[in-house]
Design a protein around this nucleic acid. Structure first.
Lengths: 345, 345
DNA sequence: CTGAAAGCGCTTACAG
DNA sequence: CTGAAAGCGCTTACAG
């Protein structure tokens, strides 16, 4: 008991050993669950651990063993719904395995800045999960040295990735395909697309799913309108589209863009879904409560985060190895913002 | 050069020493910026560091020195706008000082679970920042052992806190006061309040600011309606309030609640702001794009996060000590959702 | 200005 | 089943 209230140095393995009357060696065996320890000895040690409030130093463990039970998440953003939800999923799964989770934000897509962030993350020890939905993330994923354990959360790859690439993804392409088909099935001649910034490729997975649906239906293809990530970008894109009376259906790269588009249409006096239908992507928490409520495609981001961690965990511990490419299935959620096109009387 | 491509053990301080022809001691001096090193020696060491790609092991540093340049953020949530923005601010500031940032989520407010999370965070080493806006956070802040450096991000305290309590806060009370005054000044007889869950006290800071404004104006006081954090809670609260024709102005504990209230009013056929005015709290990114766009009070959460880190940094390094109670000033943002009450003809 | 020793709290072989 | 040694990569006094 620390009656004086003085700040005490935390108990070490040796303190426990002394208290239990064994060597610190044996204490190490006990805390590592090593089988060859006499039950009575084990109990004495356990009692001492309990009494002294011993906690094994993660730092010393990491230095001595080289392992570190930590994951750091590299991401360009922590506040957007998709990113934040992936992070949440990772944290949940990591906590369940008592891994520490660190985060590093890729504030710029500048090569040097990216390299610096990757180094910092590597310094932390443990594994890496890189959210590669944008140029910064994609570059960071590419900049990770080969010897580091890393998992990428990526857009749907254009072709099946190398088995050497531990990636997870939601099926963005399928999701965009579904949403576009939904709008076409309502009778729209075609569907316009307001895009999130592509990760780096000319054509993002979402864009290609949209295009595929148009082609299959023989619908006219327009160029995607560029829209950044937030509602402001959607608003700007929506203003352009609102001017064109031929536009009756708009698919947006995420729900925030859709919100901006909705607002722009409102300001232009075009009713939704009476004159124009709008669909989003992600099913963010507010989308169901908008007026009109937003038709969107739900993606299981927290599940994606959990999968990413599970995959990394498998790489780090070679015990519970996991299916290398868990894919979550998107789900179309039809709400008020989509309907048939106006009658062409 | 690692021509074979084999995974190499990273260079240590001794490798650098050998390469530079000095003792590892001297290398330590160079990387710590110790003054008493002959310039030519320093340069040789620096060159070796560069050539070998040496990076000082954070783990070894932590173990040997006891310091750790890390902060872990304990929070009940990572996706809500306010929480996520505080985290973002902390990360920014931490990155600028090359601190590692870890996160731990308080999934339950259960004492044992909280204690476990606090221990895990303590194990990481470094300092702690606890976001104490909710019961889980408040308990976690209380459960941190006295010897650990910790900063709390709290609601406006009822009275000035002890100097021994390193806390930061946005002025919630003032913000609620301002928003309520705004609604009253438009001519509303009184303002109803949909509350976020209080941290633990009977009356949250936001609630008391609202109440104070009503009292000063001699307006009738109603009981706050309880509304959880998300739009669903706002929706439920909004349905109740929509039934009461006397309700003409509603202040909501955050913008998500306001969104739900807006939706409920819409469903009940009550127009905003024609029949009912609504104001929110936080100025979340989507609030400006809603229809009607949302009157709200903007709080500088990222600034709050930066302040929290600065305060902790001061505690940890005793160098750049900081004003213990930086307070960010809320700003009323008037948009479409608030207006005069309907004429009582 | 620079080097040799001891130690941070553990783990990993190696003995017995 | 248990103990004594060496080492992980650094820092902190202590010498010179």
């Amino acid at each position: 008991m620390n009656v004086t209230g003085h700040t005490r140095r935390p108990a070490s393995i040796r303190d426990v050993a002394t208290a239990a009357g064994v060597s610190y060696q044996t204490v190490s065996r006990v805390i590592n669950g090593h089988p060859s320890v006499k039950p009575t000895t084990r109990e004495r040690v356990l009692a001492a651990i309990d009494e002294l409030g011993f906690r094994r130093s993660a730092t010393a463990l990491a230095l001595a063993s080289g392992r570190s039970r930590a994951v750091t998440v590299l991401t360009a953003n922590t506040t957007h719904y998709g990113y934040a939800s992936i992070l949440q999923g990772i944290e949940e799964a990591a906590r369940a395995e008592s891994y520490a989770v660190g985060i590093g934000v890729l504030e710029s897509a500048d090569e040097a800045a990216i390299a610096a962030e990757v180094r910092r993350a590597a310094d932390t020890g443990g594994g890496l999960i890189v959210i590669a939905y944008d140029p910064a993330g994609v570059r960071a994923l590419g900049a990770v040295p080969a010897e580091l354990p890393v998992v990428g959360v990526v857009e749907t790859p254009a072709s099946p990735p190398d088995p050497g690439h531990p990636w997870v993804w939601a099926d963005d392409r399928e999701a965009a395909y579904q949403a576009t088909r939904h709008l076409l099935s309502l009778g729209h001649e075609t569907v316009h697309y307001v895009a999130i910034p592509s990760s780096t490729r000319r054509t993002s997975a979402r864009t290609s799913g949209w295009r595929q649906a148009l082609r299959e239906a023989g619908a006219p293809e327009s160029r995607p309108v560029q829209g950044s990530w937030g509602p402001a970008g959607g608003h700007a894109a929506g203003r352009k589209l609102a001017r064109d009376p031929a536009v009756t259906a708009i698919l947006c790269g995420n729900d925030d863009l859709a919100l901006g588009v909705l607002r722009a249409l409102h300001e232009a006096g075009r009713s939704v879904p009476g004159e124009v239908s709008v669909a989003g992507f992600d099913d963010a928490p507010h989308s169901a409560y908008l007026t009109p409520s937003l038709t969107t495609v739900r993606l299981d981001f927290t599940g994606l985060g959990r999968s990413a961690f599970a995959l990394l965990h498998g790489v780090l511990e070679e015990s519970a190895r996991v299916d290398p490419h868990p894919v979550s299935v998107p789900e179309l959620v039809v709400r008020e913002s989509s309907g048939p096109p106006p009658a062409t009387v």
